[in-house]
């Protein structure tokens, strides 16, 4: 069997919060395009200027496929995502190797900021998964700090189960979604 790994990374790195104007409508006639949508006090927030890392003109949410036969398989710095077991925030030996390599790189390059994005699979409640993603991101953050990365340079954020990589509903999909993305 050919050893062929595909890592799918969805990177959302939006910067600005565009158009935060609340369209308040009181009394009078309300323009309702569809009876099921609209009404008073709708607010529209658009994260319009999202862009993906590693690609000049990618749009938000673009799926970047990294074929690791092309990437250097042996270079842990080529891996930006580490995966976890179900309901666990313990790092596997493989994940530990990847995290330590990034920690080393970042502590040698002070001034760089890193975002650790924690994610969970869809099993369990959304709020529990938000906390679980937080704990996973924090597990990586602790190694970073232990290896000399400045705490100020690290930002952790959890999206829980809200941003799955794979939309499938089986273990192969879930295993891709239980992850921390190391973004810098």
């Amino acid at each position: 069997m050919q050893r062929f790994w595909t890592i799918l990374m969805v990177l959302f790195l939006g910067v600005t919060l565009a158009g935060c104007a609340a369209s308040k409508k009181k009394g009078g006639t309300v323009e309702v395009e569809d009876a099921t949508i609209g009404g008073s006090g709708a607010e529209v927030i658009t994260d319009a200027s999202a862009s993906a890392v590693g690609s000049d003109d990618a749009t938000a949410g673009e799926i970047i496929t990294i074929d690791q036969d092309d990437a250097d398989m042996d270079d842990p710095l080529g891996q930006r995502v580490v995966y976890f077991d179900f309901d666990s925030s313990n790092l596997t030996p493989e994940a530990q190797r990847v995290v330590e390599a990034h920690a080393q790189y970042l502590s040698n390059n002070p001034g760089m900021a890193v975002v650790l994005e924690g994610h969970a699979d869809e099993r369990g409640t959304r709020e529990y998964n938000l906390a679980l993603g937080e704990r996973r991101a924090n597990a990586v953050s602790e190694i970073f700090q232990a290896m000399g990365v400045a705490p100020d340079a690290i930002r952790t954020i959890s999206y829980g189960e809200e941003r799955p990589i794979s939309m499938g509903q089986d273990e192969s999909a879930w295993s891709l979604n239980r992850r921390v993305e190391i973004l810098y």
């Binding site: 949508i37 609209g38 006090g41 709708a42 607010e43 529209v44 927030i45 994260d47 938000l130 809200e162």
Partner: peptide, 14 residues
């Protein structure tokens, strides 16, 4: 039904 908030790529829950 009435929409009271709309966001893009920013999850809403609970």
């Amino acid at each position: 039904s009435q929409q009271i908030l709309k966001t893009t790529n920013l999850p809403v829950l609970s």
